[in-house]
Amino acid sequence: MSENDESAGISRRTVTKAMAWVVPAVAVAATVPIVAASACNDFNPENPCPITLSGTGCKLPGNSNSIYKGYAFRLVIANPTGATITVNVTSATLDGNSLGGIRVVNLNDGSSQGNPFTVPPHTTYTAALLTQNAPNSSNGALSITYTVNGGAPMVANATIPSAPPINGNSCSTFNSTEKGYIAAQ
């Protein structure tokens, strides 16, 4: 049979050309699930994203609170798994600038959590991420990097369009009870 014998159907050359395209496509397709598996997912109990940022926050200016020259950002912390997880916030930046020390306050009951902190199984609560000794008081792109149970770093991002001072009525991110919890830190 010749290489281009029409009666035989598809030629060997055509099969060879097709194989040259199929093999790289299979290799590329095989890497996609690996990348997807390393990303956290709120719906995957094996690899949850426990921190979700609301995109809102207030400044902690001057000596207005015991924690000052920082921010209070609203977030939700969730653990959909059946086991306690440990969350360690490794950095918090605003427009690439470090926001200094970090503390988490459970806004449901006012309890303070250091860093790292644990989240009981099947628990979701609203919290405030408090920072201290920020280099300036700007608004911008908030980025929080953290690990769960010492695993690979995860990142939560949000744009903070404004961050008014926490004292007074201009900060509507937190109600008066929540502001009291924050001030007690």
Rank of each mutant, 00 (worst) to 15 (best):
S2T: 15
E3I: 05
D5R: 11
D5W: 12
A8G: 12
S11W: 06
R12C: 03
V15K: 15
K17C: 01
M19L: 14
A20L: 12
W21H: 11
V22M: 15
V26T: 12
V28R: 05
V28D: 00
A30I: 02
S38H: 07
A39H: 13
P45I: 09
P45H: 01
N47Q: 05
I51E: 08
L53D: 07
L53S: 09
G57Q: 03
G57D: 07
P61I: 07
P61E: 11
N63L: 10
S66C: 01
I67R: 09
A72D: 07
A72I: 04
I77G: 03
A78R: 07
T81W: 02
A83I: 10
V87C: 09
V87G: 08
V89A: 15
T93S: 13
T93R: 11
L94R: 02
L94I: 08
N97V: 05
S98G: 15
G100M: 02
G100N: 04
G101D: 14
G101L: 13
I102P: 02
R103F: 00
N106V: 08
G110L: 10
S112V: 13
Q113N: 14
P116I: 09
F117K: 04
T118D: 14
V119H: 03
P120L: 11
H122N: 15
T123C: 01
T123M: 08
Y125C: 00
Y125L: 03
T131E: 11
N133Q: 12
N139C: 05
G140C: 01
S143W: 00
T145K: 04
M154Q: 15
A156L: 06
N157Y: 11
T159V: 14
T159D: 15
P161K: 10
A163P: 02
N167I: 12
C171L: 12
S172K: 13
T177R: 06
E178K: 01
E178Y: 01
K179I: 04
K179E: 08
Y181F: 15
Q185M: 13
